[in-house]
Amino acid sequence: MRILILGGSGFVGRALAHEALAAGHDVTVFNRGQRDPVPGTTTLLGDRLTDGGLAALATGTWDAVVDTWSAQASAVGTAAALLAGRAGHFAYVSSRSVYRWLSTDVLTEDAPLTDLDDPGYAGDKLRGEQATAAFGGPVLFARAGLILGPHEDVGRLPWWLHRLHRGGPTLAPGPRDLPLQYVDARDLARFLLANVGVTGAFNVVSESGHATMGSLLDTANEVTGDHADLRWTDPDRILAAGVEPWTDLPIWLPPGDSHDFMHRADVSKALAAGLRCRPVRETVADTWAWLSSLPGAAPQRTDRPSVGLEPAAEEKLLLP
């Protein structure tokens, strides 16, 4: 197939480009050229937020388009309209953030959605989904949750890997058997490529419990050299210290409604459509190999806050 990726040099888009090339597809990427391109792709340059910024996409036809955009929805609609009639399928990498927070016990694709006028990320993603109507053809919404893997530019798994590599007594947020639900960016990419022509919304994350906090941190500790002494800590003590789940301690949410909403969704529809998730060890080991290969710091998205617990806060919590 001839694949057009709107993005294609960052995290999810980069994984998609690699996977598409490995499968033998002809891959074109459209982006601002701010990161090194994936070797083997054809790069078209432009800034979709500027007047005339999509000029490089004025001609050409593709079997499928994948849009990884995560900001203003108007950019999604403009691109979708421009490509209408010149591509066979449009996939939009959306988010489970489009669901109304804590709206249901078991999150399925039919769960209530957030308010369309929500000014934040959730609203942007929902408006982005609606903007794809301008494409006028088959559209798939990949409602991903937590995305991990090599080239992650949010910093969640990279923070844990660096912290564990530093070693010593290390705060581990409990309980150990707390189930996690995430997707490796490469498995998300393979799902998208396998479902060209398919329409509708899919929760694209692993089954709940594909990994746990224990298996994730134990594996990460082993992969980074087994330097850390994991000190499993009760969630109530962590919260009482003012530590913020998800941001101060990336990936982790304490047991309760928020955890269940993020880590216990129904993914049967995506599994039936071919989603397969690699073992946590492969995701962790490959991410550490990528981090270790970098000459400097890992790339960090400027539109997302930095994550990770300050050393002083961790030391205080580790006191007897």
Results as ranks from 00 to 15, higher is better:
Q300E: 11
H89C: 07
E315M: 11
L275F: 03
S70D: 15
T41E: 09
V66Y: 12
V12L: 13
M1C: 12
P173C: 06
D115C: 13
P179Q: 01
M1K: 14
A122W: 02
G256L: 01
G40H: 03
E282M: 09
R86Y: 08
R100H: 09
G242A: 02
L216S: 02
R176C: 06
H151F: 13
L107D: 10
G8C: 06
E109Y: 05
P299M: 04
A134Q: 07
H165A: 15
L291K: 01
P150R: 14
L49E: 15
A273V: 05
A111N: 10
G123Y: 07
P311Q: 07
R190M: 03
L148S: 07
S292T: 04
D260H: 11
R14V: 04
R190G: 03
A273I: 06
R237F: 04
G53H: 07
W246F: 13
V183A: 09
T132W: 03
W160Y: 05
S268C: 02
L126A: 08
D257W: 12
G60Y: 01
E310N: 10
F202D: 05
G120Q: 12
V29A: 13
L140R: 12
R231E: 02
G209H: 08
A270V: 06
S103L: 12
A15T: 02
V38K: 12
F202G: 07
W252R: 03
M262K: 11
L188C: 01
P299A: 03
R231S: 05
V154R: 15
P138R: 05
S74W: 13
F202Q: 05
L113G: 06
Q300K: 14
R278C: 09
P179G: 01
